[in-house]
Design a protein around this nucleic acid. Structure first.
Length: 408
DNA sequence: TCTGGGGTCCTAGGACCC
DNA sequence: TCTGGGGTCCTAGGACCC
């Protein structure tokens, strides 16, 4: 196509919920959390929890999300700690998504509380309305229909939209005009750029590069000598506001995982295997609920000394039954324990490498191995049906029932 | 201070194949 | 004796994000 097309710049928004989990917790419990300015949402200190979201009122005490709850409570002793209201968060996230889908055919959720919206090509539809006006209307609609306050950033790239949203917070709209990307970027530090984490930021600091302006003073060749061509090219573009990434409408999950950090480290294999089984059952039912079959199963453990290790196994055809997932996971856990034996702080299981098409006819070899028989698949389906009707714990392996019974 | 749970993407090396 | 080379798949680990 001609250059006219390229000359038209993109119109991208990033919608970011303000202190999302705090808002949800307040909506979930209007009389309690709803009336508490000093609110921390996340795990408790006795269960090795961290703060998932801290209310703005607690942040003046130095509390940040990701901080161990014990530390947060030390900084802000009067704060109230409440758990994440999972279901309501998911519900609100979906409700916001539905609003966005009405405004644009191209919406990409970036996390539970963030989504990119591409409004390129909608100029005629919106009668030439400025992007900031459209953004403000979206913000109003979201607030009215979902009761969630959001900030919206806008610009010609995902990078600009994302950084603009930080300028819009809390509750505002900030749109960077086409052509102003480089000027806009100059106000930021390098560590503010998404993708520049603590490690890269440290590396840059040793080179004397703190701000975007610092990086802009050097040509590409110099940066390449310092950082290698890959990283240098990436940074060279970012500091100029360039980002070719597109907004993907129907992004499919590449992995699904379930994990748990234990209140106390686990030493005996029996308990560990029971926990693994519980995770495998959770993962399996979530996969089947979405019609997914995974070719790769990964088991992850975090040792008492915080060393994180993983082991993975890929099979020729995707699996989705509890039995098959459990069989592979158990084998992987054994392998991890052979390599290093130490009390276990965290256990996790992940599925990836999803089969895109319905399972093909099994070969004779695979029939013989029998990772997953027809009977397994039918059993899993029946189990899912029963859980749907009678609750998530309607049918569980005997081993999990034993684990649960002392609490009853 | 004592480190969650859910993800994405990248890299490097080995196996295997032609 | 120095060793060929490229592509793909898999595994393990790590950086990074919210």
């Amino acid at each position: 196509m001609g250059t006219d097309h390229q000359a038209t710049s993109r119109r991208i928004l990033l919608l970011d919920c303000d202190q999302f989990f705090v808002q949800c917790a307040r909506l979930d419990d209007p009389e309690g959390a709803g009336k508490e300015p000093l609110l921390l949402v996340g795990g408790t200190s006795d269960a090795r929890g961290v703060v998932t979201s801290a209310s703005y009122e607690t942040r003046v005490f130095g509390v940040r999300s990701g901080m161990p709850t014990a530390q947060a409570v030390r900084l802000c002793p009067r704060a109230r700690v409440v758990p994440v209201p999972r279901e309501l968060c998911v519900e609100k996230s979906h409700a916001i998504r539905e609003v966005l889908d009405r405004y644009s055919p191209v919406v990409e959720p970036a996390s539970i509380d963030e989504a990119y919206v591409d409004l390129s090509g909608t100029e005629a539809l919106y009668h030439g309305e400025p992007l900031s006006v459209t953004a403000a209307r979206i913000q109003d609609t979201v607030a009215r229909e979902t009761e969630i306050g959001v900030s919206i950033g806008g610009g010609t790239t995902k990078l600009i939209a994302k950084l603009a949203a930080t300028r819009a917070k809390p509750g505002g709209v900030h749109v960077v005009a086409a052509g102003m990307e480089h000027d806009f970027m100059c106000a930021f530090r390098l560590e503010d750029i998404p993708g520049v984490g603590p490690v890269f930021a440290d590396r840059l600091r040793t080179l004397g590069l703190i701000t975007v302006l610092d990086a802009c003073r050097h040509d590409l060749n110099t940066l390449e000598r310092w950082l290698g061509s890959e990283r240098a090219g990436w940074l060279f573009d970012r500091v100029r506001g360039r980002d070719a990434a597109t907004v993907h409408h129907n992004r499919v999950a590449r992995s699904v995982s379930r994990e748990e950090t234990f209140a106390r480290d686990i030493t005996d294999i029996e308990t560990l295997e029971t926990e693994l089984l519980a995770l495998a059952v959770r993962l399996g039912s979530d996969l089947r609920a979405n019609g997914m079959r995974a070719r790769t199963i990964t088991v992850k453990i975090r040792d008492a000394d915080f060393t994180t290790r993983s082991s993975a196994q890929t099979v020729p055809d995707g699996v989705g039954t509890d039995r098959a997932i459990w069989a592979i996971a158990r084998f992987l856990l054994d392998r991890l324990r052979e390599r290093r034996r130490m009390p276990t702080r965290l256990l996790g299981i992940a599925a990836s490498h999803f089969d895109e098409e319905p399972a093909r006819q099994m070969t004779l070899f695979e029939e013989a191995v029998q990772l997953e028989s027809e009977r397994d698949i039918r059993l899993a389906q029946a189990t899912d049906q029963a859980r749907k009707r009678f609750g998530p714990h309607a049918i569980e392996p005997a081993r999990l029932l034993q684990r649960r019974s002392p609490k009853r």
